[in-house]
């Protein structure tokens, strides 16, 4: 519990900042709800542009707006945050040499990793929860009814995506001892793949090719339409989480902390 509390407190300021950014972005989107829904924006939008956000066949306009609100950028916030926290678990400690202070204490390496992963999971949940709550309750408060149960599933999918990205980042970070290099590399990759997903959709690239971008494993429109997560996406995300964590524990236990 001490290890959990120490890491949680160390991330408290960052957590509030990311929650605030997520909430503000979500509020900015929910405040435009009436404009988009009443103004017939989606109806006027070319089909090819709408297709960038997914396949909305048979969906009501509120659900389309919810999907686009999440996909337009709010999804980037919890995923970037997950990657940053993942990098701070070990790489930042190594970079700042506090890992010596930590590992000189009577703790097992697995304990350190587990406590920090717990903080990662809690914080990622909180950032996602704030965005979900704003979208869910602010749009509802404006008198619009969406498929709220489907929105809940969509955020489960997003949470899994965040954790998968974090697990893979954590695993890779075991070989990166420079925190700033890690942050630049992974934030760059995540942002790049986020936009690549749009490019692929715009270019109507096949699903098989799109699978190289992590954001393709959260098919927001499909989740909002069906209320379920695609089986392949679910399997890949769970495998990525378990695989990433497995490699992280294995590599951290073997990691040599030389001068």
């Amino acid at each position: 519990m001490t290890l959990f509390r120490q890491f949680f407190v160390a991330h408290l300021k960052g957590l509030f900042i990311w929650m605030a950014v997520g909430a503000l972005m979500a509020i900015a989107l929910t405040r435009s709800t009436a404009t988009f829904i009443e103004g017939g924006v989606f109806e006027a939008m070319p089909a090819s542009m709408l297709a960038l956000y997914g396949d909305f066949t048979g969906m009501n306009v509120v659900d389309i707006y919810l999907t686009i609100s999440v996909g337009k950028g709010t999804v980037l916030i919890p995923t970037l945050y997950a990657v940053i926290v993942a990098l701070s678990i070990i790489t930042r400690e190594v970079d700042r040499r506090t890992v010596e202070f930590l590992l000189a204490l009577p703790v097992q390496r697995a304990q350190v990793l587990l406590s920090r992963l717990a903080v990662l999971a809690v914080n990622v949940t909180l950032v996602n929860a704030v965005i979900w709550a704003v979208l869910r309750f602010d749009i509802s408060a404006q008198g619009y009814e969406g498929s709220w149960a489907h929105l809940d599933v969509l955020f489960v999918n997003l949470w899994l995506l965040c954790m998968a990205l974090a697990a893979v980042t954590l695993a890779a970070s075991m070989w990166i001892d420079d925190y700033s290099v890690g942050v630049k590399l992974f934030l760059g990759l995540v942002t790049l793949t986020f936009f690549l997903e749009y490019v692929f959709r715009g270019a109507q690239v096949s699903r098989a090719v799109r699978l190289i971008t992590p954001y393709s494993y959260a098919d927001l429109a499909m989740v909002m339409r069906s209320g379920t997560i695609d089986a392949l996406n679910l399997i890949v995300l769970i495998v990525a989480i378990l695989g990433g964590l497995g490699v992280s524990f294995w590599a951290f236990n073997r990691k040599q902390f030389s001068a």
Binding site: E100, L103, A104, R254, Q256, F257, S258, A259
Partner: peptide
């Protein structure tokens, strides 16, 4: 190196 190996920082 000897100290770090003694403390388990290195194997």
């Amino acid at each position: 190196t000897l100290i770090r190996t003694m403390l388990g920082f290195m194997h």
